[in-house]
Design a protein around this nucleic acid. Structure first.
Lengths: 127, 127
DNA sequence: CAGAATCCACCAGGATACTG
DNA sequence: CAGTATCCTGGTGGATTCTG
């Protein structure tokens, strides 16, 4: 069971964090998960909710989530076809730590942005 | 300060998660933070602890963290120079949600990998 | 509606060489 | 030791076209 060459394998939870960020740390995955966490949705419904995502990326993201067993795909064979996506138990369980991160973000993003601005102002003229 | 064009701005914590993943969701940031969460460390000490990171990326990562106010840089002007990095209060506070994510990862990565394998096997021949 | 396929741009990130 | 500067590649992700 070799994790290809991920760093800090000595520290177990470090590897875990690194692994999981490699999976959900992309631009859209958590947004899709969070939209599905509210309720099952169909393709274009998700696309509308997660504004700005291309159809290509939504397809890819859903496929990866399905592959990981985070999302289930229910097809109703009508015309036009209706495909509904829903979180599995695994997918729902991810929402908890993600929301923790969201809470931290909302509590600290303003401070971080302030830090950035000050840092940039200091290094603008002073170098 | 305009957040360039991040999706789902209507849902506050969604934007927060997206924002924060844009900052810490890269390949090295959390690993550096976690290594500094144990104790303050110097440049090459971090580099050794976070195996596999290039010196270039460590430089960048530390600079971004310093810019965000997550890491403080203490320079002792000796020869050779000694530079120690430590987490700020903000940086330490990030460790909590990150560890939550790590716990989730360690609890579920095996299942996810299993799901992947099964998914790939199903779609290998069956298409 | 729910995708598949293709093309393309950008940039994260690695490698290397150089510096004070 | 603690960086900086430069070059380069692979992959992420956007846009567009086509299909059942």
């Amino acid at each position: 069971m070799d994790v290809p060459s991920h760093p800090m394998t000595a520290h177990v939870d470090c590897r875990g964090v690194s692994e999981i960020l490699g999976r959900i740390g992309d631009k859209w995955t958590v947004l899709v998960v969070m939209s599905l966490n509210e309720q099952p949705r169909r393709f274009n419904d998700i696309k509308r909710r997660v504004g700005g995502i291309s159809q290509q990326m939504l397809t890819r993201t859903l496929k990866m989530l399905e592959r990981d067993g985070m999302v289930a795909r229910d097809v109703r064979d009508t015309t036009p076809p209706q495909v509904e996506y829903r979180l599995t138990e695994l997918g729902r369980s991810l929402a908890d730590p993600v929301n923790q991160l969201g809470a931290w973000a909302n509590a600290n993003l303003a401070a971080i942005n302030g830090n950035r601005t000050r840092y940039d102002m200091r290094n603008a003229d002073a170098g």
